[in-house]
C-alpha cells in the first residue's frame, strides 16, 4: 500500500503525537545528567529537582519582600497587556478590514497605505514608542497593536473581498442599505474568519509583548525571564517559557472553541465553498 494511503489507528496516532515530546524530554534528561555528573553546580541544564524548587519558589510561595506570588503577578501583568492590545487590534482590524474590503472608496484610499504600514518592522518602532509614549503600559500595548493590527486589517479586507458577489447583490435586491449589509451580512460572516486570523497572530503578539517587557518593565513574564537571566537562572527561565507556551496554546484552543460554539454555521459553510 502506498504511504499516502496508510493511516494510523486512533491509539497509534495518539502514541505518535506523544513521541516528539517524549524524545525532547529524554534528550534533556540525558544532557542534564551528563553535565551534572561532571559538575554538580552546573546551571545550564538543571535537574528536574531544581525546577520543582524554582516552581515552588515562584508559583507557590509568597515573595519574601513583597508578599506576592511572583508567577501570578507576572502572569496577570502580561495577560492584561496582551488582552488590552488584542482587544484594540481586533476592533481596528474589524472596522478597517470591513471598510477596506467592502467600500471601493476606502479601498482606494487606504488599501495601499495599510499594505505599506504592515511592512514596517514593529520592533524597529519600539524606541520611538518609548520616547513618545514613555516607558509605561501604553507603549507596550501600542507595540503589540502596531505589530498585530495591520495583519488583521489586511486579512479581514481580503476575506471580505472574497465574499461571493452574489451575496451582496442578493442583499441589495432585498432592499438592504450599505449599513444593513455591513451589520447583517458582512460582519457576522467576518467574525469567525477574524478568529482564524487572530489565532495566527497570537504568536507574534507574545513576541512583541516579551520584547517590550524585556526592555522596560517592572513586572510581566518577559520581564522576569530577562531579569533572572543575569543569574543564569535556567531553573526559573525554562518553567516560565513552558508556562508562556501553555498560555499561548490555551488561548488558541479557547478561540477555536469560541469559533465552533458561537458560529455553528461556520464549519459547514467553510466545507461547502
Amino acid at each position: 500500500m502506498r504511504l499516502i494511503n496508510r493511516r494510523p489507528s486512533l491509539g497509534a496516532a495518539r502514541f505518535l503525537a506523544i513521541v516528539p515530546f517524549a524524545l525532547v524530554l529524554v534528550a534533556y534528561l540525558i544532557g542534564s545528567g551528563v553535565r551534572l555528573a561532571e559538575n554538580p553546580s552546573d546551571k545550564l541544564l538543571p535537574a528536574f529537582s531544581s525546577f520543582a524548587a524554582a516552581i515552588d519558589r515562584m508559583a507557590l510561595t509568597p515573595d519574601q519582600r513583597t508578599g506576592d506570588i511572583l508567577l501570578w503577578v507576572d502572569t496577570a501583568a502580561s495577560l492584561t497587556r496582551l488582552g488590552a492590545a488584542l482587544a484594540i487590534s481586533v476592533a481596528i482590524g474589524l472596522v478597517f478590514g470591513i471598510v477596506i474590503g467592502l467600500l471601493p472608496y476606502f479601498r482606494a484610499g487606504l488599501g495601499a497605505f495599510v499594505a505599506v504600514i504592515s511592512m514596517v518592522p514593529p520592533l524597529a518602532l519600539l524606541p520611538i514608542l518609548f520616547i513618545t509614549l514613555g516607558l509605561g503600559e501604553t507603549s507596550k500595548i501600542a507595540l503589540i497593536v502596531i505589530g498585530v493590527a495591520p495583519c488583521l486589517i489586511r486579512d479581514m479586507a481580503l476575506r471580505v473581498g472574497d465574499m461571493p458577489v452574489q451575496q451582496l447583490i442578493k442583499a441589495q435586491t432585498l432592499g438592504a442599505s450599505t449599513w444593513q449589509i455591513i451589520i447583517r451580512v458582512v460582519l457576522p460572516q467576518s467574525l469567525p474568519r477574524l478568529i482564524d486570523s487572530l489565532r495566527l497572530q497570537i504568536g507574534p503578539a507574545w513576541l512583541f509583548l516579551i520584547a517590550a517587557e524585556a526592555i522596560a518593565s517592572e513586572s510581566g513574564l518577559g520581564y522576569r525571564i530577562f531579569l533572572v537571566r543575569r543569574y543564569l537562572a535556567m531553573d526559573v527561565i525554562l518553567p516560565y517559557v513552558a508556562w508562556i507556551t501553555i498560555l499561548a496554546f490555551l488561548m488558541d484552543r479557547i478561540l477555536l472553541i469560541i469559533q465552533t460554539r458561537a458560529f455553528p454555521w461556520f464549519a459547514g459553510a467553510r466545507a461547502s465553498t
Binding site: K170, V185, Q189, F263, W265, G268
Partner: peptide
C-alpha cells in the same frame, strides 16, 4: 449558487 446567506 451563493443565493442564500450561510450564517442565517
Amino acid at each position: 449558487r451563493y443565493s442564500v446567506f450561510p450564517h442565517l
